[in-house]
Design a protein around this nucleic acid. Sequence first.
DNA 1: CTGTATCCATGATGATACTG
DNA 2: CAGTATCATCATGGATACAG
Lengths: 123, 123
Amino acid sequence: MGLPLRKSKVCPPPTCPLSEVLGLLRGAWAPNVIWQLSGEPRRFGELRHDMPKISARVLSARLRELETRGLVTRRVLDTSPPSAEYSLTSLGRELLPAIDALACVGRKLIEEWEMHQRKVALS
Amino acid sequence: MGLPLRKSKVCPPPTCPLSEVLGLLRGAWAPNVIWQLSGEPRRFGELRHDMPKISARVLSARLRELETRGLVTRRVLDTSPPSAEYSLTSLGRELLPAIDALACVGRKLIEEWEMHQRKVALS
DNA sequence: CTGTATCCATGATGATACTG
DNA sequence: CAGTATCATCATGGATACAG
């Protein structure tokens, strides 16, 4: 028979909002894109330069997604050749603290991991 | 020629720590697993019950990852049939506020999105 | 019950080439 | 420069069957 299943005492998991955001942070790039836009508006080419390993296709796709969700705005500049500038909306800026919180935990994770590795190396 | 590339004024992107965490939150399940463990320790079967749509293979994989990274501990219970209980370590608990922050932004995102949809419907 | 192994479908990404 | 189309590749997740 085994043990009975205990009812979860965790309140409604924030699954929907969470997956909403995580869906946006998807891939390995979206968080970086947002981060890169945290300062001044940046052009497509500048973003590519900031993230040398992202392909144009993926960068384009991420920007469209973020634009659709209202996190990023796109502005076409009247230059020759034409260029486009992307910036975070105020809604998009709300993600920054959350991203920062994650990065903060990430740093601790790496620290602990290295400490753990050292211990293992000694034994 | 076009515009010159402006140097990014964004300080060193927290790419490494970020991807460290996001790598852990990967898939669509890890955050939920962590959330489900935020209360009391839970057994494998209980977790499956909490997340009906996760497959045993994936749940197992996620738990192993989290265990390896020191976010989760696994304890085998001396029952018949044997069962295993998982709980968050203190390091793992540090992720909770960050996850909560994300969920918080997620709620706003959904709100804004719905408002946006209503506007579109009217026009 | 607690997993693990296998097979398969899907989705995300990179590279390349090409249009406006 | 900005962006898209196409193709090939790889990682991830689900289903199922099975082992301890």
